[in-house]
Nucleic acid binder design. Structure first.
Length: 456
RNA sequence: GGAGGAAUGGCAGAGUGGUCGAAUGCGGCAGUCUUGAAAACUGUUGAGGGUCACACCUCCGGGGGUUCGAAUCCCUCUUCCUCCGCCA
């Protein structure tokens, strides 16, 4: 059932990357944007075409942006000219006072009144135009990479790789939530008591196995050159905007209103924001971070048959990898991340497949995403356990994460991230695929981390 | 939580109403010298907007105000430091 497909699917020609930007552009109010305005100006039609893959018609949005952009620049110019004039007058007044010509100075003063008024009006106008422009820009998702297949739903995702053997289980094989109860390693009801649904309590060997997985993942990532970071689990609003969770996914994050902080939905947010407002040297690349954090998701509106057990939780653990790359190298880096995650799943001997997400399923901020899914035998279904994405300049633009190119110019870097891995579904996969009559066997690579080789 | 002090360019650190986008030092980059390196010397070196390119505009923790004019004065928020209290 699982045969290897060609590896060549990951060999993407960097020249094929769309919107590989040559110039940066930031609006005068120093706020961040999403797709770069400069790019929209230069490649309007390409962007609209690319966004069609997401099944959205962005033409009115894009046209609105361009219109406001033009208006903004015109207003800015008028304001600049007004300010230039009053600056000049002020200097003259200063000189006159210095040379004792107070009378002449006072005469000049009278001329400044209208200039002041004009610049105030223009400033307000500029402010509201910029704000409107900003809110339009925030509504445009990233342009998909050209390799992204068209499509609406997860049905249209493209399976590009499959590997591993599905174990032959006894006919009375149990799903993980039954196993969790049988061996008393995860208690969902206890979690309901102290918090609510979706907050399981891990017990004994279950807790130990989870900790073993975290350590194992972190060690593997460190081996591959990722620097381990421990980061806050609450982030401020600016961080949420930086990586694109805000304003798009406002309702999906837990918001601590008393302090206006958000519980992180993924380590991606604090880790990528470590580099917000930074200007790197080219020699800093590649930047590779890994972090273990709990992740908190409200999962508003997602109820139904597939949320049992560990399949969908409000709090879960995840080890994340984040990379910041030179634009020319980011797709190479994406390949490397995919290979890295493959290596971990091979070690764990879990059957898995890789999907290239279609336009309709692609995350708002991503240009290209590969999902990893583990086959959960007892449930007879695929479970998403990793998502590896290249955001190109989309996040960097919001983060103002730049580097100096060989000409000394600031350019936006590319950001990428991926799970390596999301714990609960890996755990579910292990419990279900490794169950035997004697108990649940522990994958060999985890035994040293667990200190036991079977849960019975 | 209470009382004080502070926030300036990559870093350190001047500047208390006018030609200050900001002295000076360190660091970085380029050059001279050198077989090479170091040292020394010379030049250069913040981020954005705007323009074909200039001009020009904005930014001295954030926001607001006073003034013809603000890094400098006032208000406010945030952060950091010192002392006291409390505490894992």
């Amino acid at each position: 059932m699982f045969e290897n497909h060609s590896k060549s699917v990951f060999n993407i020609d960097p020249k094929s990357i769309p919107f590989n930007l040559k110039k940066t552009y930031f609006c005068s109010l120093n706020k961040t944007e999403m797709l770069q305005l400069q790019t929209i100006r230069e490649k309007k039609d390409e962007i609209i075409t690319a966004l069609k893959k997401r099944n959205i018609d962005a033409s009115s949005l894009v046209n609105g942006v361009l219109e406001l952009d033009e208006k903004r620049r015109a207003t800015q110019t008028r304001l600049d000219n007004t300010l230039a004039e009053s600056n000049k007058l002020s200097k003259e007044i200063g000189m006159l006072f210095k040379s004792g010509k107070a009378q002449e100075a006072n005469q000049l003063k009278e001329k400044t009144g209208t200039l002041k008024e004009t610049s105030k009006t223009l400033g307000e106008e500029l402010g509201s135009i910029s704000e409107a422009l900003q809110s339009l820009l925030y509504q445009i998702p990233n342009a998909p990479h050209e390799s992204v297949p068209a499509g609406n739903t997860e049905e249209d995702n493209e399976e590009i790789f499959k590997e591993g053997d599905v174990p032959e289980l006894a006919t009375d094989a149990l799903p993980h939530w039954e196993l969790a109860k049988k061996y008393d390693i995860i208690d969902f009801e206890l979690g309901v008591k102290i918090t609510g649904a979706g907050f399981p309590v891990y017990k004994g060997k279950g807790a130990r196995l989870q900790r073993a997985l975290i350590s194992y993942f972190l060690d593997k990532n460190a081996e591959a050159g990722y620097t381990e970071m421990q980061v806050p689990h609450l982030v401020n609003e600016a961080s949420g905007y930086g990586t694109g969770q805000l304003p798009d996914k406002e309702g999906q994050m837990y918001h601590v209103t008393a302090d206006d902080l958000y519980l992180i939905p993924t380590a991606e947010v604090p880790v990528t924001n470590l580099l917000r407002d930074e200007i790197l040297a080219e020699s800093d690349f590649p930047i590779q971070y890994t972090a273990y954090t709990p992740c908190f998701r409200r999962e508003a509106g997602s109820y139904g048959a597939h949320v049992r057990g560990l399949n969908r939780l409000h709090q879960f653990d995840k080890v994340e990898i984040v990379r910041v790359e030179h634009p020319d190298k980011s797709y190479e880096a994406l390949d490397a991340m995919v290979e890295h995650v493959k290596g971990i799943l091979r070690d764990l001997k879990l059957p898995y497949r890789i999907l290239r997400l279609c336009g309709g399923d692609l995350g708002f901020t991503s240009a290209l995403t590969y999902d990893f899914e583990v086959f959960s035998t007892a449930q007879d279904r695929w479970l998403e356990i990793s998502s590896v994405s290249n955001f190109e300049t989309y996040q960097a633009n919001r983060l103002k994460l730049r580097y100096k190119d060989e000409n000394g110019k600031s350019q936006l870097a590319h950001t990428l991230n991926g799970s390596s891995l999301a714990l609960p579904r890996v755990l579910a996969g292990i419990l279900e695929n490794y169950q035997t009559a004697e108990g649940i066997k522990i994958p060999e690579v985890l035994v040293p981390y667990c200190g036991f080789d079977i849960i019975d």
